[in-house]
Measured scan of single mutants.
Amino acid sequence: KEEVSSHTSPETGIWVTLGSEVFDVTEFVDLHPGGPSKLMLAAGGPLEPFWALYAVHNQSHVRELLAQYKIGEL
């Protein structure tokens, strides 16, 4: 988790977690339908608090999209 928390910018890579999985979403930030700034709120940390607020994320196609960016496990 400490390593994930240091990845919060395009220069270091933008990493997020979901459960025990780690994702590098650097290439996706500008494609995020809610805008880059919304995704950047989660940079370096867990997606769960944000996904709890926005139910649109609880769809299979969203998880499939995220899976493409998986880089490891906590």
Rank of each mutant, 00 (worst) to 15 (best):
L39W: 03
H32N: 00
D30L: 08
P36F: 06
P10A: 12
P36L: 07
S60M: 12
R63M: 11
E73F: 10
A43R: 03
Y54D: 10
V16W: 00
I14P: 00
S20Y: 10
V56M: 08
H32P: 09
V29K: 06
G72Y: 05
S6F: 15
L47R: 02
T26W: 00
T12M: 13
S60N: 10
P36E: 04
L65T: 14
Q68P: 02
T12L: 09
F28L: 01
V56K: 09
F23T: 00
R63F: 06
F28I: 00
E48C: 05
I71H: 04
G44D: 05
V29F: 02
E27C: 08
K38D: 01
K70P: 03
L47V: 08
H61F: 08
M40V: 07
H7T: 05
L66V: 07
S20H: 12
S60R: 15
Y54T: 06
L66M: 13
A52K: 11
L18V: 07
L74M: 15
L66R: 01
T8K: 15
L31T: 04
Q68V: 10
Q59N: 11
E64T: 11
E2K: 12
V25G: 04
A42P: 15
V25N: 08
M40A: 04
G19L: 05
P10H: 13
D30R: 05
P33D: 00
L47P: 00
T17A: 09
A55K: 15
F50I: 03
S9E: 14
L53V: 14
E64A: 13
K38Q: 09
L18R: 14
G34E: 02
F23A: 02
D24W: 00
I14T: 06
V62H: 00
A67I: 01
G34V: 00
V62T: 02
K70I: 03
E11N: 13
L74I: 14
A52L: 06
L31F: 08
T26P: 00
N58L: 11
D24S: 04
G35Y: 00
E73S: 12
L41Q: 14
A67V: 10
E64N: 06
T12E: 13
E2S: 13
T12P: 09
L18F: 11
G19F: 02
A43P: 02
G35W: 03
W51H: 08
H57D: 03
T8P: 09
L74A: 12
V16E: 06
E2P: 08
H7E: 15
E64S: 11
L74D: 06
E21A: 13
K1T: 08
E64C: 10
L41R: 09
L53H: 09
L74H: 09
G34I: 00
S20L: 13
G45A: 13
V4G: 03
T8Y: 15
T17K: 04
A43E: 04
P36M: 07
G45P: 03
H32C: 01
A67C: 09
L53Y: 11
E11M: 09
P36S: 09
D30H: 10
M40L: 14
F50E: 07
S37D: 15
E2A: 12
G13D: 07
T17I: 03
D24M: 02
V29E: 03
P49N: 11
H32S: 04
E27F: 01
L18I: 05
A55D: 15
P33Q: 03
G45R: 13
E21S: 13
H61K: 10
S9A: 11
W15Y: 14
L47E: 00
A43L: 01
P49D: 08
G45V: 01
P33L: 10
G35K: 02
P10I: 10
Q68S: 12
P36K: 14
G44H: 08
G72C: 13
T12K: 13
I14S: 02
S5N: 14
L18D: 10
L66F: 15
T17R: 00
H32Q: 00
S9N: 13
H57G: 09
W15K: 03
V4C: 09
E3I: 15
L47C: 01
E73Q: 14
G13H: 07
V62M: 01
E27Y: 05
P10Y: 11
D24C: 06
E11S: 13
F28G: 05
Y69N: 08
T8M: 15
D24N: 12
L31P: 01
L53G: 13
Y69F: 13
L74S: 09
L18K: 15
E21N: 12
P49F: 09
W15M: 10
L74K: 11
L65D: 09
V25L: 07
G13R: 11
S37F: 05
L41K: 12
L65F: 02
G19N: 07
P49L: 06
P33T: 02
Y69R: 06
H61S: 10
V16D: 02
A52R: 13
L66K: 01
S20T: 14
D30F: 08
A67K: 12
V62G: 01
Q68M: 12
I71G: 09
W15S: 07
L66Q: 02
W15Q: 08
T8D: 13
E11L: 07
Q68G: 11
K38Y: 08
Y69S: 11
H7P: 05
S37R: 12
E2Q: 14
E73T: 13
V25H: 00
S6T: 15
T17Q: 10
L47D: 05
E3C: 12
L18Y: 14
G44E: 05
L74V: 12
E2T: 14
L65Q: 11
I14D: 00
F50P: 04
G19V: 05
P49Q: 09
T12A: 14
A55F: 08
A55W: 04
V25S: 06
D24T: 01
V29C: 08
P49E: 12
L41N: 06
E48A: 11
L39M: 09
P49T: 07
L53N: 14
Q68K: 14
Y54L: 06
P36D: 07
V56A: 07
